[in-house]
């Protein structure tokens, strides 16, 4: 039964967490989750995932390849609160404890099509010299208790971060009934998909 006037639109996302560039670190794994507004609900697929531990490639690229699949479908009545994917990358420190090596977030592309996104990854920093010293001494880095804060705009003015890597994501976006609800998402773009498939240092 295809309703004549739908009230819900669907957003289907497939893709992968392709690879990462972290010049200073090795043996990293990646967690992803989605953050979305109140009007949104997942209808199919997994909205969380945790990848394998990847080591750097032994060539000039120094790439950490995860090739980790993403496949999720959301429904909503309002584009406000459009889903963001939140990534957190972890790896062992010199004592073998897992510590965070980067947080990052990006909106799922708005327009249908194939999109590649290279997202910067950052870690929070201690604000005081005493905290800096104790975290160095105890070997415990500051972390967010909930990684989802990186998808929020409020309350950021108190945080100091250090950006130290990039993760490349690939999205295939399909929308259903957006046009019927009166939304214009613009032309289908394939922004950033052309060109080499692994990050080439710092994207501009």
């Amino acid at each position: 039964m295809a309703a004549a006037s739908p009230s819900v639109f669907l957003l289907m996302i497939t893709g992968q967490v392709e690879s990462a560039q972290f010049p200073e670190y090795d043996d990293l794994y990646c967690k992803y989750c989605f953050v979305y507004g109140q009007d949104w609900a997942p209808t199919a697929g997994l909205e969380e995932g945790i990848s394998q531990i990847a080591s750097k490639s032994q060539d000039v690229r120094q790439a950490l390849v995860w090739n980790f699949p993403i496949d999720v479908t959301f429904k909503s009545t309002n584009p406000y609160g459009w889903p963001q994917i939140v990534l957190s990358v972890y790896g062992p420190d010199v004592f073998g404890n897992d510590v965070v090596r980067g947080y990052g977030a990006v909106h799922v592309p708005l327009s249908p099509g194939r999109h590649k996104r290279t997202i910067p990854m950052f870690v929070p920093e201690s604000t005081s010299t005493l905290q800096k010293f104790t975290s160095w001494f105890m070997g415990r880095r500051p972390e967010y208790t909930d990684p989802k804060v990186v998808a929020q705009g409020e309350g950021r003015e108190v945080t100091r971060v250090r950006s130290q890597g990039f993760v490349t994501l690939l999205f295939n976006v399909v929308t259903k009934d957006m046009k019927k609800l009166g939304y214009d998402t613009g032309p289908v773009d394939t922004q950033g998909v052309l060109g080499p498939s692994l990050p080439q240092g710092n994207p501009q």
């Binding site: 010049p23 200073e24 963001q84 990052g104 977030a105 990006v106 909106h107 997202i119 910067p120 950052f122 920093e125 990186v150 998808a151 929020q152 705009g153 950021r156 003015e157 945080t159 100091r160 971060v161 250090r162 950006s163 130290q164 890597g165 240092g201 710092n202 501009q204």
Partner: peptide, 17 residues
């Protein structure tokens, strides 16, 4: 946004939604 001190390259990243 947050305060970013980049470690690689000279671009400061905020990723502010």
């Amino acid at each position: 946004t947050q305060v970013d001190t980049p470690q690689i390259g000279d671009m400061a990243y905020w990723s502010h939604p």
